[in-house]
Amino acid sequence: MQVPAPFVYERATSVQDALALLAKHGPDARLVAGGHSLLPMMKLRFADPAALIDINSIDGLDQISVADGIMTIGAMVTHAQLLASDVVAQHFPMLTEAERVIADPVVRNKGTVGGSLCQADPAEDLSAALGALRASVTTIGSGGSRSIPVRELHDGPYQTVLDENEMVTEVTVPLPSGSSSSAYEKLERRVGDWAIAASGVSVSVADGVISEIGIGLAAVEAPNMVAADAEDAARGQVPSAELIERIGELAAEATDPNTDQRGPADYKRHLAGELTKRALRRALTNAGALTNEGAL
């Protein structure tokens, strides 16, 4: 029987209330959103918070909106909400595609966007996808509000750069400019599993060349879960079959995967390259920059 170690339960009614409760209970307090990452770790006693502060009763953190070229996703938006959102699918097909393969439909009813990012799991799909899209998290803490790029949020596995008295309230994603699209490719052993490897690619094309690109990688130990060298090599280039091959190779080189029960390191590195090529090819095609996908 798996039951968490004893803890004090508190329910926050506002962001300020949550911060006050974090301050009251000190460094061993944790916020709980959907709980679908934290509670399993507590049941296994990998996590042992002295106090658990439930933020589900805070109003206003579960909205998705678009204004001034930025999409804002509340920290408490669930995976199911993100998957069902038409405005998300319209601007960021990658997020919809990633959500379709995150956990299972029942788990997606509880798991949240903010919780997923703050869990800082190196295999977590949204961290890769939102990193590719150059999203940022907005936080509120004792020192006020700040914005942290998703690419800089994690400070190692299961660790974030957040202060003890700081919480994520929303995620902001800049809308792409020009002709753009994005795609997410994930290989998993079975429905609901973590990725063996996954790659998400976002591209914008202007004047016949790639004007901006983001490549996020999950479960393959890429620094900051992105392929920065591959992004640099693609920017300013004319889309072509040769370019896609080269970008895939560079994405694979960005990885340092571990051999585990999901597969050997070589296999995962190969997958990172292949999945990046597939995602890039689809994104370019959907952006109208490749007219003959079959020939590639």
């Binding site: 709980v32 709980g35 679908h36 509670l39 439930d54 589900n56 439909p105 029942v106 009813n109 509880k110």
Partner: peptide
């Protein structure tokens, strides 16, 4: 009205 896995939710979180 939404299906959830009750092994991964605290009873306290279901309050209200």
């Amino acid at each position: 009205k939404k299906p959830v896995k009750s092994c991964t939710m605290l009873a306290a979180m279901a309050g209200g």
